[in-house]
Design a protein around this nucleic acid. Structure first.
Lengths: 388, 388
DNA sequence: TTAGTTTGTCTATCCAATAAACTAAGTTTT
DNA sequence: AAAACTTAGTTTATTGGATAGACAAACTAA
């Protein structure tokens, strides 16, 4: 039985977390506010706040307005008490951010990735991350961790089991990075960190259950269920891109037939554009064509929108989420996709499940993943705080 | 902020729950065993166990073996300290059980349901349940609750929003029953309670993430994720029967096209049997034919197995569960379905997701739902104990 | 017998939360 | 401006759990 048993330390940790959370959410606020908000006794709040001030996570920022009594001392979270690094490892680029503990971006860098072998990538990644770490200002906690999103399957130990577009198999990335930097490292799938990013900083703020659909060359998905990222039994789930929507459709490289991503991804778009002789084989050229009003291109985007809708209807029926967020490169085609996507979803999903659902596009654009990677490092830091 | 704050009462509730759980799981065992198992101090365990004995949930049952010291006093859970009623409301039947708090069946009843209007069903259900309640032996907690599984969509308030096969819309069943009996009542979808039943008492014992697929006239599903029944934002999720597996397939009554249940349900089987002139239009007749070795019938079952496999592959890719459990009437056709179902699933699902997965059939047969209904009443009782 | 072992209880102590009293620092009323 | 009131935050004594360690009880083995 590894269930943690209850003792006083647990209570203190819980209540400290509650206090910190209310500072994070509602700052600036006073000790009295926290007491009223949380139901904790004023004395308890005072004591816990003092601990947080001592540790450097919270500070007093002067007094607020009074309505006939002593003025409250306002508190705020010290976002600069620590920093996190987020990395989005793409197929031909690396993007990195250095953020404070509230997710405020201090620094952002991008680099090309001309070769993708694990060794070569690591050779680029290491100085790339080191530069971000080095730029972090002095702070109470320093750099609290590194989060990395990768385009592939990642196991619970942070090994990249399979990343077809990088040509990786069984690359122990977490091991390598945490050894190199001596910092906590979290590796996760690009769609999973994208989901975290959009939920924390983007269109999914405050939403409890949300499915993030990363539509790039393939389709990946991140599932936020009951406010938590859902991972399957083995740590990888949500391969909704390989949900078959045509049982007898064309074979997919995954072994299944008629996978959703064969119909609704950027790759699908480009393949069909090539067949029809549209554009120059890039998303950009097609977007430009659509912008100029080319009817065939617009019809093609509408088709992709419809295919997206077919899959989204499935998602809605399966998960009954509060929101579905479309991200990654294809979200740039929103104007030409959205209408048909929504129409198809609404005509296909169960009525009861459509009530109150929101079909959104990523707010963070191509930064969903990198921000989510940073956020996962931040939240891991808070989790460590809570349990120690 | 409604987060419950931590105080000593919380500690005690937590630790009491931990102790009770270890008694439930590992009885018979001694106080010393519990202390070793849970990490709680011997004194703490003694005190909590005494409380549980006083409340009637635990009792001493004599001494055990010693290996050179004082003999341990063995404890066990008093299953007969309370009783629960489980009801499986079908389209033309009602099945009910009275169980003790461990889920041991004390009494089981079935009745026909000739008419399905809410009033008529309630007229039958009320005395049916009353009889079960009346038969419960005297006990410390009495009948702790009533769980009901229904073939339809149920909202969080226990209202049946939509049950096409009963012809129900917006029937406040929980209200009606809890008013009639003055007991806690839980209403849930048949597949959800079936999932609970199989997980607690059937083939899913001890499994953390499991998808229960109820294949009857339609296909319903219950999702056990991270040891909990997953319900969507609005309380209904897991309509995997209406996952489209042929985007351009035939229209389904749900509004979508090519839904899984159009290919893999009992209804699909019977429709195709009728087309082919096989059997007398019942599952029983087809099973008999297959038993006798009729090749066309067997091929038909194999086809259904393949269609089941297509959907299961999707499930596996989406959820990466530890197990998929096939239940309800179609599980009776296991001998004629299983091979093709497994073959199709394995050829279509992602390799990584197949590792260690188990494709099982319901152990409880047609009692998955009724047992799960009782279990949901029992676990609600324990939950109440824990929070008060 | 005697020594050693294991179970379970008892006792003193610790610690976090709390209520209530109190101090601090304001605003409003007269 | 003094008195009365308000609100913020701290101090103090109390409460109620968990705990370590001492201890008693009950056993085995030699």
């Amino acid at each position: 039985m590894k269930t943690p048993t209850g003792d006083q330390a647990l209570i203190k940790r819980m209540n400290t977390a509650i206090v910190l959370e209310s500072v994070l959410r509602d700052a600036p606020l006073s000790r009295a506010d926290i007491s009223a908000l949380t139901g904790l006794n004023k004395a308890t709040v005072s004591s816990l706040v003092q601990d947080l001030i001592d540790s450097g996570l919270v500070r007093e920022i002067g007094t607020g307005q009074s309505s006939g009594g002593r003025k409250p001392v306002l508190l705020e979270f010290v976002a600069e008490s620590g920093y996190a690094v987020g990395v989005d490892l793409g197929v031909n680029y690396v993007r990195g951010v250095l953020t404070d503990l509230r997710g405020g971006v201090v620094l952002e860098r991008t680099a090309q990735l001309p070769r993708t072998s694990p060794e070569e990538v690591f050779g680029i990644l290491r100085p790339f991350i080191q530069a971000l770490v080095d730029e972090a200002p002095e702070s109470a906690f320093g750099v609290v961790g590194i989060g990395v999103g990768v385009p592939g399957l990642v196991d619970r130990g942070g090994s990249v089991l399979y990343a077809p577009n990088l040509g990786w198999r069984d690359v122990p990335l977490q091991d390598a990075l945490s050894r190199a930097f001596g910092l906590p490292v979290l590796i996760d799938n690009e769609a999973n960190v994208g989901a975290i990013g959009e939920r924390q900083f983007g269109s999914g703020r405050g939403i409890g259950s949300m499915i993030y659909v990363s539509v790039g060359m393939g389709i990946g998905t991140g599932l936020i269920l009951q406010k938590e990222l859902y991972k399957g039994a083995a740590g990888f789930s949500g391969e909704l891109g390989h949900l078959s929507i045509e049982a007898n459709g064309p074979a997919c490289r995954c072994g299944n037939r008629g996978c959703w991503e064969l119909y609704a991804s950027e790759q699908a778009l480009l393949a069909r554009a090539a067949e029809a002789g549209l554009g120059e084989g890039t998303l950009d050229s097609l977007l430009a064509l659509a912008e100029r009003g080319d009817a065939r291109t617009r019809a093609l985007f509408a088709d992709i929108g419809e295919s997206l809708g077919v899959g989204i209807a499935n998602i809605v029926n399966v998960f009954n989420p509060e929101a579905v967020v479309i991200g990654n490169t294809m979200s740039r085609a929103r104007p030409w996709l959205e209408e048909e996507m929504i129409r198809t979803t609404e005509s296909r999903a169960l009525n009861f499940h459509l009530r109150g659902i929101r079909l959104l596009f990523a707010e963070l654009g191509d930064r969903s993943a990198v921000m989510g990677a940073a956020e996962s490092a931040i939240s891991a830091f808070f989790k460590r705080l809570r349990s120690a």
